[in-house]
């Protein structure tokens, strides 16, 4: 029965949407903050634009799935009454996503960094406009802003393995400069990311008991643990690997590939956890 498979589909679409939009916004921020440097600017913006396009497809699929769920059958995906309800829940976020994708596409063509930054901000806003923060009895607006900022920083961090990967053609000096620029932003932003994540999770779960005793809270705690592991990799890069890249390039690049690979795996686990928390671990499972 299609309803039995619905949670799995919801989870798959949420994971695809989260990955693609986080990457798009993150890469756009790398371009806006010139992390990628002049040499990588065009490539990073092209990736950001392509990822935004994939994200829009997932967003459209999510809208159709919610419409089908409201209508009670897959055939109701494009039923006007059901679609109207689904749009009332997801419409503002979809408009923000579309605006973000358009701005990033224009930035990729014109290479205007400011447009890339605005596009990333629009995408972050989209994530603040949906989800569990909307149902908070208090602090709903503050939590929505916190989610948007949390999302933007998470995207910035998640895009790091792509724009910092030590490609053979990249000069050691260029790679070192990228790592330095990334660290300068990450050192302040990543602790803020963790603090906002803890606060929003605390508010949504209703306190410590909700965090430890519900499936939803446990998934958020798993995401926090994954973030701490990724922070440890980031600290290792900042403290040792960045300088190795200049002083001992072979060893430095090898270590950088290892830490970025671990970060990628940790990010994937964190995104899967948060996708499950917002889909499979719904109200009926609590």
């Amino acid at each position: 029965m299609w309803a039995d498979a619905l949670p799995v589909w919801r989870f798959a679409v949420a994971a695809g949407l989260n990955v693609s939009i986080l990457l798009s916004a993150g890469l756009a921020l790398h371009a806006a903050l010139a992390i990628d440097g002049p040499a990588g600017h065009r490539r990073v913006l092209a990736w950001a634009s392509a990822s935004a396009g994939v994200g829009l497809v997932f967003a459209g699929t999510r809208l159709a799935m919610l419409s089908a769920e409201i209508g009670g059958s897959p055939g109701a995906a494009f039923d006007s009454a059901s679609l109207d309800w689904a749009w009332s829940a997801l419409g503002p976020a979809m408009i923000a996503l579309a605006v973000g994708a358009a701005l990033i596409a224009v930035a990729a063509i014109s290479r205007a960094s400011i447009l890339a930054g605005l596009g990333a901000a629009a995408m972050a806003t989209a994530f603040g406009l949906t989800g569990h923060t909307q149902a908070l009895p208090s602090f709903s607006a503050l939590a929505s802003i916190a989610v948007a900022v949390h999302f933007a920083i998470a995207g910035f961090w998640i895009a790091a393995p792509l724009s910092l990967w030590p490609r053979a053609k990249m000069a050691d000096e260029d790679l070192h400069a990228r790592l330095k620029r990334f660290s300068a932003v990450a050192i302040g932003a990543v602790p803020l990311l963790a603090a906002l994540g803890v606060w929003v999770g605390w508010q949504i779960a209703g306190g410590l008991n909700g965090l430890v005793s519900t499936q939803y809270g446990q998934l958020l705690l798993f995401k926090l643990a994954a973030s701490l592991l990724a922070m440890a990799m980031g600290a290792l890069n900042h403290r040792y690997v960045t300088d190795f890249v200049l002083n001992d390039p072979v060893r430095g690049r090898r270590w950088l590939k290892r830490t970025l690979s671990i970060e990628t795996a940790v990010f994937a686990a964190a995104i899967l956890a948060v996708s499950a928390a917002t889909t499979i671990a719904g109200p009926s499972e609590l």
Binding site: S138, W199, L286
Partner: peptide, 19 residues
């Protein structure tokens, strides 16, 4: 500030209850 934000916890989980 951090303590006050954490202590200002909603009385219930943010999900709407089933009808």
């Amino acid at each position: 500030l951090a303590a006050s934000l954490l202590l200002a916890t909603p009385a219930a989980f943010a999900h709407s209850d089933p009808a």
